[in-house]
Amino acid sequence: MSAATQQPKAPPGPEGTRGTGSLLRSELLRFATRRFIQVLLGLAVLGWLGAIGIGLLSFDHPTAADYAAAEANYEQALDADEQWREDCAEAAGQPTADFCGPPLQVEDFLTVQPFDLGSTAIPGAMSAAAGAAVLAFLVGATWIGAEWSNRSIVALLFWVPNRLKVMGAKLGVLAIAAAVIGLAAQAAWLAMAWILDAAAGSGRELADGFWSELLAAQGRAVLLTVLVALLGFGLANLTRNTGAALGIAFVYFAILEGMLRAFIGMAAERWSLMVNTVALVLPGGTRIYDWDAAYTAEPPSYLVTNLHGGLVVGVYAAVIVGIGVWLFARRDLQ
């Protein structure tokens, strides 16, 4: 080792004093340099590019020949459809359109469809929200899971012994990153929709309130991304392992929710994570039905609103993160 360099007589920094450290800045830098997170984000970008490619191949302006073929198929199906609608209305005892859906149109038989922004924007934003939520869960879990795996979080305590401050900085960085991921996902969907609309748009006029409804749904999608990232973080922090957090999530969604729904029914669904996640982002929330109850026309139902969904998912995230932080603040660290 070099003998040339000596320990300074005073702490390093301007005029012998240390500068003001920024734990948040340091953690942001740590987050940005995390290789697995970089890989996940890179894969997400590749997926987006792939989706644009598939969209460009799937949508197109129909030609006169396409319309002629659709017209022929429509004529063939028309008689059978009218008969079915009459039978349907008679059985239901209600006006046909209310219960049996709208009548067939020539456009329904087009094999080549143009991209319709008005009808696709909300479902697309929901898909982007789902993708961003899965990505955010993985990022949140690996962000803290890797820290426990290599125990660098313990090393950080030699520098910042306030454990709540350390955990707060990590949560803050994750919340910022998840919000950016959520925003980027929604921006990516808008960009993709613009590309598809420019290449193969239907040209139909957008309904009144289209943008306000879409932007509100996208805003809720960003909130969902942050909450799901915190859920991933909380689970990995409790188990101190990324893989265990993913395993718990899988068992919950694949097995536990189904069992609760089967045994408890709608009461369980009202508080289930999946239902409330969907309710948070879908415009107007989501309605759940009690299919086991006795009913004639329609089973009893309950509307899970956006607010209900947000509060339930938020409480789940707060409890799971809170327990992990509380244990981190109290436990001995080896």
Binding site: P14, R18, G21, S26, L29, L156, V160
Partner: peptide
Amino acid sequence: RLLAEAAGVPRSR
């Protein structure tokens, strides 16, 4: 560097 940033230690150190 990650540790130095957290404590405000200059990079030269």
